[in-house]
Amino acid sequence: MTNVVLLERDRLTTGTTWHTAGLLWQLRPSDTELELLAHTRNVISSELEEETGLETGWIQNGGLFIASNKQRLDEYKRLMSLGKAYGIESYVLSPAETKDLYPLMNVKDLYGTLYVPKDGTMDPAGTCTTLSRAATARGATVIENCPVTGIQVKVDDLGVKRVKEVETAYGTIQTPCVVNCAGVWATKLGKMAGVNVPLITMHHAYIVTERIEGIQNMPNVRDHDASVYLRLQGDALSVGGYEHNPIFWDDPLMICPSWTA
């Protein structure tokens, strides 16, 4: 598609994008997700740079899922088998093999791990900038500092509500389709079109450690049972996850006044 317009209220990546983890784990229990992730990895790791001359900040340092119980390890064995069908290189490692790969890890309470050598991370801001450059070169239009003020809908001959146009402070854009990419602000944007988007904003924290000797080039780690990830960040770690007792944030605009449509 070449007649696409991206409207950004502020500047690209000034919302929550710039501090996202940028992790790419290739293995998922869904074959559809596997194909999407394989495509994403190809685009991020090579195709975008070849097309634009810009870097996405891709780092292929591998990914490691840790299993602290037998059930989780059995799940990882199934993921490995599914991955093989899609050509994704992966290995189920014993605690001793995991220790050889990641000497700093305490493996005494582990049943094993799932290691995917070609997992990695991308720089969120760099990836967004490169995607924007590639899309613009192919005919898309990116307009920054252009907040959406309204979305007009009409009822067609079949009684179905359809988008008619998008309103901004600088004029309107006639379009039959709106893609709501506003993240935590998607609910507010949806209301403009009379659509209920069932999202709610929550507080979220992540930690960046000081320098850790010997951590360089280690794979990123994910613990599904604890809902925690450890992302390599140079010679330090960025640690985050999903809070088990999240605190809701009533007004997402107080976090960062930016949305994208």
Results as ranks from 00 to 15, higher is better:
186 A>I: 00
239 V>E: 02
121 T>M: 03
173 I>T: 01
180 N>P: 06
127 T>K: 00
86 Y>L: 11
14 T>H: 12
45 S>A: 14
89 E>R: 13
57 G>C: 05
86 Y>S: 13
234 G>Y: 05
31 D>E: 15
74 D>F: 10
179 V>R: 13
102 Y>S: 01
36 L>N: 09
186 A>H: 03
6 L>G: 00
155 V>S: 14
121 T>Q: 04
39 H>D: 12
118 K>S: 14
75 E>L: 13
203 H>K: 15
71 Q>C: 10
189 L>W: 00
157 D>P: 02
150 G>E: 06
25 W>E: 03
62 G>S: 09
50 E>W: 07
110 L>N: 02
7 L>E: 01
82 L>M: 14
211 R>A: 15
210 E>F: 04
231 R>A: 02
225 D>L: 12
166 V>F: 02
94 S>A: 14
81 S>W: 11
67 A>Y: 03
237 L>T: 00
246 P>N: 09
136 T>D: 06
123 D>V: 02
59 I>T: 11
69 N>L: 07
84 K>T: 15
258 S>G: 11
202 M>I: 11
195 V>E: 06
155 V>R: 15
39 H>L: 14
23 L>V: 08
3 N>G: 09
253 L>P: 04
180 N>W: 03
45 S>P: 04
140 A>R: 04
89 E>Q: 14
65 F>W: 06
106 N>F: 04
179 V>T: 04
250 D>Y: 10
229 Y>W: 13
119 D>M: 05
233 Q>H: 10
159 G>M: 08
134 A>W: 11
158 L>F: 13
27 L>H: 02
82 L>S: 10
241 G>N: 08
234 G>K: 07
17 T>E: 02
188 K>C: 08
135 A>E: 04
223 D>C: 10
156 D>F: 08
45 S>H: 06
170 Y>K: 12
109 D>H: 12
161 K>C: 10
49 E>I: 03
49 E>M: 08
217 N>L: 09
7 L>H: 01
215 I>T: 01
60 Q>I: 06
44 I>R: 00
157 D>A: 15
25 W>P: 01
245 N>Q: 15
91 Y>S: 15
7 L>G: 01
238 S>V: 07
23 L>M: 08
30 S>E: 14
70 K>F: 06
238 S>R: 03
153 V>G: 07
242 Y>N: 14
53 G>S: 06
208 V>C: 09
21 A>L: 08
114 L>V: 10
90 S>K: 01
205 A>E: 13
166 V>T: 03
72 R>T: 05
157 D>W: 12
28 R>T: 12
251 D>V: 09
